[in-house]
Write a protein that binds this DNA or RNA. Structure first.
Lengths: 220, 220
DNA sequence: ACGATAATGGACAGTGTGTAGATTATCTCT
DNA sequence: AGAGATAATCTACACACTGTCCATTATCGT
């Protein structure tokens, strides 16, 4: 009846860590699909039977690993954001609150993991899971408070949230593949500025005058 | 020595179409990894031996299908963009040129394909391939011309390009999963506006004043 | 209608899968 | 340090999937 709530036996921890490392290395080399359980246990130097003592199949190994990193991201993000501070910041136009580097920090702490799983050899489920979560975060933490302030959105908030989330994934991928030439703080600031001031500003041009334009969306 | 340049036999076309359809349907149901060649041929109602007459393995079936859609996207995009028209538009501040719905149009024409392959059950390689291409497009067609005009970018153009590309993927996924409640033209316009005027504008607020801020990037 | 080409059915060895039981090695706890 | 618990290993097994082959049948283009 031990639900693994307690910290597991050292042997268990060791074996699981070895298996996860092996999986990551192999994903880089061949991509997830091409990997056999044999490959993983060979690489981890662990008996194949042992693998099945821990996981039903290689999908479960992957999924469990993903979940751990994901859960940590969620926990990190929830801890950081404080609705009241946030709402106040909005009202007073103090946007520096949004230079929030927690996400990028978290990525650095799991750099290898993100680099592999977000890559072309990676796993679509991971990308989508993270992107959807980020979108939800943006929507709940930014879009909703703004709307609650009585402001009418000019574009569908859901779309905006998914755009921002997608952009963050794109930026993170670029960042990790460039060898991380920027600090998480730099990234957070640049990412905020791009979102806030727009593309043309980022490229050094004047901010264009928005054409008077009501929300073309939200039909049905 | 027939290089398949010529239109293949009707039987070939039929079989390949059936196999591709079957693959797509099965990806939705179980995800690519869980599919066996047997599954595909059963679903397509084709002999397993026949499969191997056309493709070495299921990866090749997927890859070839992806390439076709991707190549069509590339062809479409290249045809649309005309550097000179584009540069002129930039100089004269006529941004309506950028309400370019070709991408979104192309997605509609392969709706099922995109919905499946960009989903969590989909294929990371496809997402990354498309995203990288879009980034390259933005960089070459927009960032470069702007820089050539003598303007100094405030953020690394590569980062900006990858952000825009990521955002487009995010927006497309959202669009397809919502049941496509907007026309491609709407999408193109909204997407442009979000990029140009920024997040706060989209949410109905005033555009914030950019803090005077030189490029924090491009170290090394 | 004829020659060319594709599709089929069946069989093959090879590889990976997931399970089980008996045995050995290593942990935890006192 | 030693006893009892638990994990890891080894071996073997039945099963599914793979990729290839060949002889035969069906369908194509002209």
């Amino acid at each position: 009846m031990n639900h693994d709530d307690e910290k597991p036996d050292r042997r268990k921890r060791r074996t699981r860590a070895l298996l996860r490392q092996a999986l990551m290395a192999l994903i880089v080399e061949k991509g997830f699909d091409a990997i056999s359980v044999q490959d993983i246990t060979d690489r981890a130097d662990v008996s194949r039977a042992t693998f099945y003592l821990h996981y039903a199949d290689k999908e479960e190994l992957l999924t469990r690993s993903m979940r751990e990193v994901y859960d940590e991201l969620v926990e990190t993000a929830e801890k950081q954001l404080d609705d009241e501070v946030f709402a106040a910041a909005l009202l007073h136009g103090d946007h520096s609150t949004f230079y929030d580097a927690t996400d990028f920090q978290h990525v650095v702490e799991h750099e290898e993991f993100y680099r592999v799983l977000l890559s072309e050899k990676g796993v679509a489920a991971f990308t989508v899971m993270v992107r959807d979560y980020l979108a939800k975060l943006v929507q709940e933490q930014v879009c909703l408070p703004v709307s609650a302030g009585g402001t009418a959105a000019r574009l569908p908030p859901e779309m905006v949230a998914h755009a921002v989330a997608g952009a963050e994934i794109g930026v993170i991928s670029w960042w990790l593949n460039q060898g991380r030439h920027h600090t998480p703080e730099d990234m957070a600031k640049m990412f905020y500025q791009l979102n806030a001031f727009g593309f043309w500003w980022a490229m050094g041009l004047d901010i264009p005058a928005p054409t008077a334009n009501p929300d073309p969306g939200a039909p049905g």
